[in-house]
């Protein structure tokens, strides 16, 4: 079953109507092609209207869409010969993060990403894409390997956040996230991060220290979920819609705040409407990033990484 979002209902209703008319004409003598034509034109302009005026809350729904492509979908589309590697060598294997190597345009790269499940069973196995410490530590282990073998790193970000669990705290989730931030800062290979769905808080950030950061048009990046923000700020999680606006979490917001490098456009109706088209859009941006970054010497790369993060923030000195 295809998930229909609230704001898409007028589109779906109209589509159903058109389909109805079409099947009706098939079985009868009456010619309705003119009516159908009119409705199809109206559908097109309705789609344009709705999809080009998405509110932040609509984008949150898009980012969380059940059919939204995941890390493994993009790996499949963009790379060849992907080999997955498991485990952090300390505690276990966290399936909320996938990690491995593959070819990208003939060159080996390391690819790491949060992985949500496609159904309930897989979601349980992958903990809904919310990592434990061993996930971040697995990622770091592979990043160090990338450094050793001089491979660029691509990170796909797609998580509601770090898993708020007892075991995660016991095993040092703070330290694991912090360690990744610090170590990624010093990796001597190019790092490109792409937010493909939800970029939630520290769990996202732990794969998010890149030389270039890109966001899919309908992805989000935030310090807390809109529901969480509403509960904290206004003691009312029903105000999530308002929080989605106030907290400035869309790709357009992040671009304006000077945090991300570019917005990767999505097919009409969102990435899930056409994975191939989405991957092609991503491919162009990724290739451009890697070409630009590979031109730098190690010193330049690290210096630019520092410059990038040094300027993020807004404060006064009076």
């Amino acid at each position: 079953m295809k998930q229909v979002l609230e704001f898409e209902k007028p589109i779906v209703n109209l589509k159903e109507k058109i389909a109805e008319l079409k099947s009706f004409t098939k079985d009868s003598e009456i010619d309705l092609s003119e009516e159908i034509n009119t409705l199809e034109k109206r559908l097109e302009s309705l789609e344009d209207d709705i999809y080009s005026n998405l509110k932040p809350w609509d984008r949150v729904q898009m980012a969380r869409h059940q059919q939204r492509p995941t890390t493994l979908d993009y790996i499949q589309e963009l790379f060849t010969d992907f080999i997955e590697f498991h485990g952090d060598r300390f505690y276990g294997d966290d399936e909320a993060i996938v990690s491995g190597i593959a070819y990208y345009k003939g060159n080996p790269i390391t690819v790491i990403g949060h992985q949500r499940g496609k159904d309930t069973k897989e979601n349980i196995r992958r903990n809904f894409g919310m990592p434990h410490p061993e996930g971040y530590r697995k990622a770091l282990r592979h990043m160090r390997q990338a450094e050793k073998f001089n491979r660029p790193i691509v990170c796909f970000i797609d998580t509601k956040g770090a898993y708020p669990g007892k075991a995660a705290e016991e095993r040092g989730q703070s330290e694991a996230i912090a360690r990744n931030l610090m170590e990624m800062a010093g990796l001597t290979v190019p790092i490109v991060c792409i937010v493909i769905g939800e970029g939630g808080s520290g769990g996202a950030l732990a794969l998010g220290v890149g030389d270039h950061i890109h966001m899919l048009e309908n992805s989000t990046y935030s310090v807390i979920s809109p529901e969480g923000a509403a509960a904290l700020l206004w003691k009312d999680s029903n105000l999530a819609q308002k929080a989605a606006e106030t907290m400035k979490i869309t790709s357009y917001d992040l671009k304006e705040l000077g945090i991300i490098d570019s917005i990767i456009s999505e097919p009409k109706g969102g990435a899930h409407q056409n994975v191939k088209e989405q991957a092609e859009n991503m491919d162009k941006v990724l290739q451009k990033s890697l070409t630009a970054l590979s031109a730098y010497s190690t010193d330049e790369l690290l210096e630019k990484r520092w410059e990038k993060y040094k300027q993020i923030g807004d404060y006064k000195e009076n």
Partner: peptide, 9 residues
């Protein structure tokens, strides 16, 4: 918001 998050980095 997210600017706060980025101070960690």
């Amino acid at each position: 918001g997210v600017l706060s998050l980025m101070q960690m980095t």
